[in-house]
């Protein structure tokens, strides 16, 4: 069975993105093992002369390395992903490169009607950068709008249409992960290139 790491893109205790990932973990438990990972205790990303990376970021990196894929749920703050998620991704590409060629599914929830659409678009660009170089599942948007009203008291999504869409996308993701496993001819060289690339080298 595939194992996925699910990153909660918010540091808020009351996060509907966390709720969404919990729901996915429960809903798809027979198809995949999903482990939720929190990033809220990571400090703000800061470069240092000795390239220090916090232990917690290293632990998350190891989990991602070992996983078959990553699911990210992001809220939208000011048309983009929260600083805390941006910061986590910066740590996770600072001398370590767990995301290279890793299949990623992007989801997101927001209180308003747009469901974090612009944050997700930026997140795609970010994950596409040379040091992250993730393999983002193409043409698959899951935008959960009005997220405060979306779940029932058991934490289950209420809207059948949305559940159906999520089911379909998750099945796509499983297929995408399986295909991706065969597309690894360039993996070694990709990893090498990510390692050699640096934002502060020319």
């Amino acid at each position: 069975m595939n194992k996925f790491i699910a990153i909660v893109g918010s540091n808020s205790n009351k996060s509907t993105n966390r709720e969404l990932l919990k729901y996915m973990k429960k809903r798809f438990q027979s198809a995949a093992e999903i482990e939720l990972v929190e990033i809220k205790n990571l400090p703000i990303y800061k470069k240092s002369a000795d390239k220090y990376v916090p232990q917690e970021a290293l632990d998350i990196a190891n989990k991602i390395e070992a996983a078959d894929g990553v699911i990210i749920a992001t809220p939208e703050y000011d048309h983009s992903i929260p600083a805390v998620l941006s910061s986590a991704l910066a740590w996770l590409s600072y001398g370590i490169h767990p995301f290279v060629d890793k299949p990623v599914m992007i989801t997101g929830a927001s209180y308003g009607s747009l469901g974090s659409s612009r944050a997700q678009a930026q997140l795609r660009q970010i994950l596409d950068s040379p040091e992250l170089k993730a393999r983002i599942m193409p043409s698959s948007e899951f935008l959960l709008g009005h997220s405060l009203q979306a779940f029932d008291e058991n934490g289950d999504l209420k809207d059948e249409k949305i559940i159906k869409q999520l089911d379909g996308l998750f099945q796509d993701f499983l297929d995408f992960v399986n295909i991706s496993k065969q597309l690894n001819n360039a993996n070694e060289i990709n990893k090498q290139k990510a390692k050699e690339f640096s934002w502060d080298k020319d």
Partner: peptide, 13 residues
């Protein structure tokens, strides 16, 4: 600056 195709987390923060 640009980091991972976006602004630094510190600025966004």
């Amino acid at each position: 600056p640009e980091h991972n195709h976006t602004v630094p987390a510190a600025l966004k923060n």
